[in-house]
Computed example of a mutant assay.
Amino acid sequence: MRRRLPAPVCALLTLATVTLLAVGATVAPAQAGPGAGRDPEAPASFVELRRVDPTIIEEIRYFTPHNFMGVPVTGYEQPLCLLTRSTAEALRRAQRTLLRQGYSLKVYDCYRPQRAVDHFVDWARDLGDQRMKAEFYPRVDKTRLFADGYIAEKSGHSRGSTLDLTVVRLPALPTRPYRPGQTLTPCYGPKKERFPDNSVDTGTGFDCFDTLAHTEDPRVTGVQRAHRTLLKTTLEREGFTNLPEEWWHFTHQPEQYPDTYFDFPVALRSLHRP
């Protein structure tokens, strides 16, 4: 999709960079030397969100098959939210605001390795694989995913300051597990007909490839619009900016790594430990 998120006290390992001729950005590769060929590690400024604020609900969709591809995504070894520390601390401040109002943040995706983005791209090129179309892109032809901006070869998530999230009314009810092969319903339908998510009603489900997911779409009114506004204004106060095409997508500014796309796995082993 237009994809656009800090275990300190160890020294920061120097990461070699590869210049991308097309965009002038860098991808952080595996460490050179005796350990060459191993997975790269995260900079020391990345942390597990749960260690910064354990009250934020986590439902890491790409670790599971309940996503627009219908399979767990490459690079998600554990259901974790990894972010730069400054982003995680900003989320903690936003969470404190929401808790006082009887709500909690819930994250769907945080840092995303480049290998996961590559998996998205490969899937988008396979026009025969449309197993999740009925839920995630029922009104979009798969041949249009690149042209319409739903899939891209780079994502801001790979830089560590971008994440996808929503709001849950407390006390949080459990979300029924997704069962592969179950009947799918459109992500833009009425909440009672969509996949049962314990979040508030924002007019569409997460990762809905549809113009109704645009944050300010005029068709979204009433309580649904109020919930989008609650999420957006709360996060904006803490330095986040929203991607207008996706009500759930936010980036903390200024980004610590605005030009680097990391590829370490989503796993605790990627983090520096004291």
Rank of each mutant, 00 (worst) to 15 (best):
A116H: 00
G189T: 07
L15G: 06
R38L: 14
D141P: 00
S158L: 01
P244V: 14
P29W: 04
R237I: 03
L105S: 04
S158W: 00
S270M: 01
T215M: 03
L99D: 05
A44R: 04
F206P: 00
I56M: 08
T260L: 07
R93F: 03
L243K: 06
L271G: 00
P79D: 12
S158F: 00
P177V: 11
S158I: 01
R92C: 11
D259I: 03
P218E: 10
T215S: 11
R159F: 09
F195I: 06
D210N: 14
K106V: 11
P34V: 04
S155M: 03
A94C: 07
L13K: 04
G189Q: 14
F68K: 00
F195N: 05
T84V: 15
E77G: 09
A42K: 05
L243I: 08
G70Y: 09
Q95L: 09
P244N: 09
M132H: 11
C110N: 01
G102L: 10
L235N: 03
L145W: 13
C110H: 00
I60D: 02
R51L: 14
V107G: 02
A44D: 08
R2N: 12
W248H: 15
T64V: 05
L268R: 10
E135P: 02
R237C: 01
T215N: 14
T55V: 05
H214S: 13
R176T: 13
R228S: 04
G203Y: 00
T17V: 10
V167Y: 02
A16C: 12
S199M: 05
V18R: 15
R139W: 07
H157M: 03
T143E: 13
C110V: 03
Y261P: 00
D141L: 09
P8D: 10
L13H: 10
A11I: 12
F240V: 04
W247L: 04
F250V: 06
R139D: 13
Y178K: 01
D263G: 02
